[in-house]
Computed example of a mutant assay.
Amino acid sequence: METALGTVKSFDPATSARTFRIALSELGEIGWFPNFVSEISRTAPQVQIHSVALETERTEQWLQSGYVDVAISSQVLSNNFERTAIKEQTFSIVMSHRHALAKDEFTVSKYAEASRVLLAGDSSLEALLEAEKRAGIFSTPRIIIQRYATLMPLLEQHPTLLAVIPTSMAHGWAKKFPIVVHQLPFDMEAFRLFVYMRTQTHDVSGLKWFYDAVTKSTLVYPTLFEAIGSNEHRARQEGQS
């Protein structure tokens, strides 16, 4: 009955002041959230958008309960949720152009012996560790951080370090910062990212509108991953001038 009523109830983005909530990782918020605001503001200037930090162990519960309306995640959730695949994400090595291995061809042994930074807060962590084990790499990372925003200034200040990050982000950074990008010397399965919509309730038309706007923003607009760390880099350069 709720679904039937929700289908009949119209949603007018031009006049709505509804609040929508979207669960995003740190990368998702920096790479896509400005695009969401641009796309939604174009037709719905009063709609409010709240970002919620993605917690993978709670994503399904949040969508079921309606705590969030939409989530972007690499998780494969139950068939109860409508979803759209938006991206296949591969991973690459990044390091300062001053790193001793910057111009070398990477091998498994060189990777295993290098001082590495691990992004503990990234959803790809488990997949990276499994890929390392399959390649016979059991050495532990030297540095563990929680946020990508920390990584660029860390690599810049400590050029002996390297890290594994999404390839799209790596090449975005390489256009702006003095870093080099290398392929991984072992196989790591690409991540598929999905936009998920919560189970339908009383306002299907508004929910579907928001889901479609988010999906369009991820597919049509360029991502902004290279913005991560740019302020810190700029401040450091200004301080050195």
Rank of each mutant, 00 (worst) to 15 (best):
H202R: 15
I22Y: 07
K176S: 13
T223K: 12
Q89N: 09
W209R: 01
M1A: 15
A131D: 02
A149L: 08
A71T: 05
H158Y: 10
K133C: 06
A23Y: 01
A174V: 07
I165A: 03
D212V: 05
V47C: 03
R58P: 05
R236E: 13
S205P: 07
H171F: 15
K103L: 15
A23H: 03
V195N: 03
R58C: 08
A235G: 11
H99V: 02
P13G: 03
Y196G: 01
L128R: 07
T15C: 08
E60Y: 06
R236L: 14
T167I: 00
Q48C: 08
T215H: 03
S124M: 13
R18E: 15
G28L: 02
M169Q: 10
P222E: 01
L54D: 03
V70T: 00
V164K: 00
V68N: 01
Q61F: 13
I40S: 03
K208M: 12
F20I: 05
A102N: 04
S241I: 13
R134H: 13
R58M: 13
S16V: 02
L54S: 07
V37L: 07
P45M: 02
F20L: 04
F11P: 02
W32Y: 14
P178H: 04
E39T: 11
H182E: 04
R147Q: 14
R142P: 06
N80A: 10
Y67R: 10
Q64M: 12
K110H: 08
K110E: 07
K87N: 10
R18P: 08
E126V: 12
I49G: 03
A112L: 03
R142Q: 14
V52G: 06
L151Q: 03
S51N: 11
V8T: 13
L154S: 01
H202A: 15
V220S: 10
P45Q: 04
L219F: 06
Q46Y: 12
G31N: 08
M188R: 00
I165H: 01
S41I: 07
A114D: 02
A4L: 14
Q200C: 11
H99P: 00
P153A: 03
S139C: 05
S74F: 09
A235M: 13
L54H: 07
P13S: 05
K9R: 13
F36V: 06
A120L: 09
S124R: 12
S73A: 08
Q61V: 14
K110S: 12
V214Q: 03
F138E: 14
R98M: 08
G136H: 07
H99Q: 02
F225E: 09
F106N: 06
E156F: 14
G66W: 01
T140C: 10
A170F: 05
T199I: 10
V70F: 00
N79C: 09
Q183Y: 11
V8H: 10
T218E: 09
V180P: 00
F138H: 09
I86D: 00
R42F: 13
T223S: 12
E132K: 00
P153E: 03
I30M: 12
D69C: 06
Y196N: 00
A85K: 08
R98L: 14
A131L: 00
L155A: 02
H99A: 02
S65N: 10
S96A: 04
V108M: 05
F177R: 08
A127Q: 06
L161H: 01
